[in-house]
């Protein structure tokens, strides 16, 4: 049965799009049929992170408005045959996204895919509420930093009250993904620890993604970090997270960034 998964956070810049691409690509590699849906109307970026920006012809809003049908708007990944993208519209009209329109598209996608991953925009406005509206599960992306944790708490409250599942008296299954984690700084007491964040947010942990240059390197070339270098520390952390998402029990590793002697001597940052 198809699962609708929203990747959300409240705060911007914490790694929603990076995580959507990495989780989507990894699920597809595991044989699941996956569509990643960009909900950031006016500021789409998932196409860019996936390296599909030049292949966008039709978008989400075009399908809602009947200008194109779904199969015309879906873009198949060139590397993974199981991975598809539904791009957001670049229109400035935020009202172009309607609840009925989203419902119609999600319902149709459910018949075609195993996973529908909704990349939420930042904030708590229309785009973010509609991205989570039909979700069965949610990945809350959080940085170990006060403003991100506070916004995540707010988003968790919304997942528990403003989604269709919540209104039907059920629960959206929530997973916490801590990103941009710096083990050394946390150990020195300069950054909230994993335990701190878990205790405050009270949500089960899906994975810990380290702060890493591999993430930027992958987005520079338009590839999910898991495809660009599957052996990199963040890629392995995402792959473990996907195994947990699929129900496997995988021991949680606090990622230790590889540091060469020169890095240490020069005091360079992790990974």
């Amino acid at each position: 049965m198809a699962k609708v998964l929203v990747v959300t956070s409240g705060k911007g810049g914490v790694g929603k799009t990076t995580s959507t691409a990495a989780l989507g690509a990894t699920l597809a590699q595991k044989g699941e049929k996956v569509v990643v849906v960009d909900f950031d109307v006016g500021l789409r970026n998932l196409d860019l992170v996936l390296g599909a920006e030049r292949r966008v012809v039709f978008d989400f809003i075009n399908v809602v408005q009947g200008i194109a049908n779904l199969s015309q708007a879906l873009i198949r990944d060139k590397r993974l045959e199981n991975l598809w993208l539904l791009p957001a519209s670049q229109t400035r009209d935020k009202d172009a996204l309607t609840e009925e329109g989203v419902n119609k598209i999600i319902t149709e996608l459910r018949t075609k895919f195993d996973w529908i991953i909704c990349d939420s925009p930042a904030g708590i406005e229309r785009g973010a509420t509609l991205a989570m509206r039909y979700a069965d599960e949610a990945v809350i992306v959080t940085n170990p930093e006060v403003s991100s944790v506070r916004d995540s708490d707010r988003i968790i409250g919304m997942l528990d009250s403003k989604t269709v599942k919540a209104e039907q008296g059920e629960q959206v299954k929530k997973h916490l993904l801590i990103t941009r984690f710096d083990t050394a700084r946390a150990a020195r007491g300069e950054m909230l620890s994993i335990d701190d964040v878990l205790e405050i947010l009270g949500t089960p942990l899906l994975g810990i993604i380290p702060e890493s240059q591999d993430v930027l390197r992958a987005s520079n070339v338009g590839a999910p970090v898991t495809l660009n270098d599957a052996n990199s520390v963040p890629a392995r952390a995402y792959i473990d997270a996907v195994r947990r998402l699929m129900g496997e029990t995988v021991p949680m590793m606090v990622p230790v960034a590889r540091k060469g002697l020169m890095d240490r001597l020069l005091g360079r940052r992790a990974a």
Binding site: V146, V149, R150, G189, E190, M191, S193, D196, I200
Partner: peptide, 26 residues
Amino acid sequence: GGRAKSAPVARERLQILLAHERGLRG
């Protein structure tokens, strides 16, 4: 000794703030 640790301060501030905000919610 290094600088004073700031993470415990962050943790405490968040716990107080969120307890308050959760009370108002809903």
